[in-house]
Nucleic acid binder design. Structure first.
Length: 288
DNA sequence: CTCCAGGGCCAGC
DNA sequence: GCTGGCCATGGA
């Protein structure tokens, strides 16, 4: 095992809890005072202490996680841009979600995770992905202990539809199997990063099981296309309740936001999603 | 029991 | 091009 490094950042624009729990990512588990974070075959330990956010990982993975957590980007500008829009719900969302960062995730891992996400809830999605890794991925060991890598495309493609159903994927099982086989037979998902956002989404939607919303998520979270604005049930609520929008077609709602927020769309979307989902769940708990 | 979750596919207009 | 029904699953 290699040396262990401790990377420290000011937590004002890097809150580890909000960054992990804002729905862009599923492979994290509570650990000690923070979280274990898995991406591809790597694992790190993240926690907050005082005004600092700390990442502990093996030295050879330091560059990977610095990029993963997007540490080079100045989020104060994004935050200020959101405030300057002068929209009340966006101001409140950005203020509460000031520490959210967009993670730089692997495109293929993101693709499978968000195919699984459709018409599903976050706890179930997390659970299914964890089972996928534990049963198909390679076992890894580092200073944090044993864990499992995200399975390779060959490992996914060689599993059966029945297996995917057995880990709770339901009707999404056939989508996962089909996309895995397609990638195995030559569909180069990594080559798509050179495309424009709209061309990328068009290509992704050709995959069976990928519609406009999943394509938006994969474009944003996997291909860093920040001029994407995924519209799910929570964002639709924000649109109707807080932006007083009247459109019903989610693709049109998405276009409404990207026309308005341009290259900051994806960042603002995360502020809004996180805010809406959190406040509704708090309201629900209060009633109990 | 019904309704819902980071929706997509398909048939029928 | 648009709409409604259907698709598994588990928690509330």
């Amino acid at each position: 095992m290699g040396n262990i490094v401790k990377l420290e950042y000011d937590s004002e624009f890097f809150n580890i809890k909000d960054t992990l729990e804002c729905g862009q990512f599923f492979r994290y588990t509570p650990y000690k005072a923070g979280y274990l974070v898995n991406s591809l075959s790597k694992c790190c330990y993240c926690y907050q202490t005082g005004n600092n956010t700390v990442i502990e990982c093996e030295e050879k993975d330091a560059f990977y996680f610095e990029n993963f957590f997007d540490v080079k980007r100045d989020y104060s500008k994004i935050y200020q841009g959101a405030i300057n829009e002068n929209v009340e719900v966006l101001t409140v969302s950005a203020t509460q979600g000031k520490g959210i960062r967009l993670l730089n995730q692997d495109p293929v891992e993101t693709l499978f995770c968000f195919i699984i996400s459709q018409n599903n809830n976050i706890p179930r999605i997390k659970n299914s992905i964890e089972k996928l890794c534990k049963s198909l991925g390679e076992k890894q060991v580092n200073f944090l202990g044993e864990y499992y890598a995200f399975p390779s495309i060959v490992q996914i493609a060689s599993a059966s539809v029945e297996f995917f159903k057995s880990i709770g994927l339901g009707y999404r099982a056939e989508y996962v199997k089909g996309v895995a086989e397609l990638i195995c037979s030559g569909f180069d998902a990594y080559a798509l990063s050179n495309l424009s956002t709209s061309e990328l989404k068009r290509k992704l939607i050709e995959l069976r099981g990928v519609g406009p919303k999943v394509a938006d998520c994969v474009a944003l979270f996997g291909y860093k296309k920040s001029d994407s604005f995924p519209v799910d049930t929570w964002i639709e609520k924000v649109y109707k309740q807080d932006f007083l929008g009247t459109l019903n077609d989610r693709e049109k709602i998405s276009k409404y936001f990207t026309d308005r927020f341009k290259d900051n769309s994806g960042y603002y979307q995360q502020y809004l999603f996180h805010y809406k989902r959190n406040t509704e769940q708090k309201e629900f708990k209060k009633r109990k």
